[in-house]
């Protein structure tokens, strides 16, 4: 095999049997994955699934307990600095420098990468423009809104022009408008060829941004594929959501169990999985059942997750 070919197919991140233990708690239990250059790759799972622990290992700030991890074909244990120099990190909790202005946050961060000061300043101006914060350049960090802080954190993570960008729950806690602005910026980065790796417990975020994702639960990977593949593999095309008066769900459920391919009884509603939701709803009415509300919708990753783990994503 020629050297050229090998380089071309080399994944930007690869993990084999990756494990993380804290004292006697095993947060990540031997996972395997590969991320290709230019890909947007997601870790989807509820809180405590091991997503953040995995991200911290990829970010080379948390030593691997066992298994192998390679980034840019380098070992984090011995080449942490070299790897971090080529990577941008957006942590779950903003850790902007509260003692500096918005502009200086970017300049000083660039200096940590040994980027010349003049270059830091010109990149800072461009990045503030990119995240639409130019008019706040001289402001302190504290008065910024949550969405603005998040955008500034993303600008900061780009100061070293990273090949790989890690985003740990990038939009958790933001309002819908702020999330959409952020998604748009991330999409542009992806178009520029930056490899995105993100964790999320929002299925819509995963569907919007990820080419491919793994579903994590209890420190393990339980499924892998593109959002469409996962839905096709683990769910039906449509879902019928039925809501009956409080406390009568379980009882009414008995009369619909034979409908559709399968069903889930949740505390507040019954989900009936079928390729044609409308015809199932028709049958429900024909049986004389009168739900308080009924909704036919497309299957989502939420349904995939429910199917794989028996639990919902957001507790």
């Amino acid at each position: 095999m020629g050297q050229q070919y090998r380089v071309a197919v080399l994944p930007i991140v690869s993990a084999r049997g990756l494990t993380k233990k804290f004292d006697d708690f095993e947060a990540v239990r031997g996972i395997d994955f590969e991320i290709a250059r230019g890909e947007a790759f997601g870790f989807l799972g509820p809180n405590g699934a091991g997503k953040s622990s995995t991200m911290r290992m990829i970010g080379c700030v948390s030593p691997v307990t066992s298994g192998t991890l390679r980034l840019f074909d380098l070992d984090p244990a011995t080449s942490g600095k070299e790897i971090r120099a080529r990577m941008g990190v957006v942590p779950q909790q903003d850790n902007l420098d509260s003692e500096l202005t918005v502009f200086d946050n970017l300049v000083v961060y660039g200096r940590y990468f040994d980027i010349p000061r003049a270059e830091c300043k010109s990149r800072a101006r461009e990045l503030l423009d990119f995240v639409q914060l130019s008019d706040r350049a001289d402001s302190r960090v504290e008065p910024l809104s949550g969405g603005m802080k998040r955008r500034l954190t993303i600008a900061r993570s780009l100061i070293n022009q990273p090949e790989l960008l890690l985003l740990d729950e990038p939009t958790t806690g933001l309002d819908p408008q702020a999330r959409h602005i952020l998604w748009d910026r991330l999409y542009r980065l992806k178009q520029q060829g930056v490899t995105l790796v993100l964790t999320t417990h929002y299925m819509d975020e995963a569907e919007q941004l990820c080419d491919r994702l793994v579903v994590m639960d209890g420190g393990r990977i339980v499924a892998e594929g593109s959002p469409r593949e996962l839905i096709a593999q683990h769910s039906t095309r449509e879902v019928l959501e039925l809501r009956f008066p409080a406390g009568t769900n379980a009882e009414r459920a008995r009369s619909v169990t034979d409908l559709g391919e399968r069903h889930e009884i949740l505390p507040d509603r019954i989900l009936v999985y079928a390729d044609d939701g409308e015809s199932v709803l028709h049958e429900v009415h024909a049986r004389g059942l009168s739900p308080e509300s009924a909704l036919v919708r497309r299957s989502t990753l939420e349904d995939v997750f429910l199917r794989l783990t028996g639990r919902s994503l957001v507790d």
Binding site: G59, V61, K81, E82, R84, A85, V89, P91, Q93, N95, L96, D97, S98, E99, Y109, Y112, F113, D114, R156, N160
Partner: peptide, 14 residues
Amino acid sequence: HARLYDGVLATPMS
């Protein structure tokens, strides 16, 4: 409180 060093350690700084 400021978690300043978390950010610093994500760069080549040790």
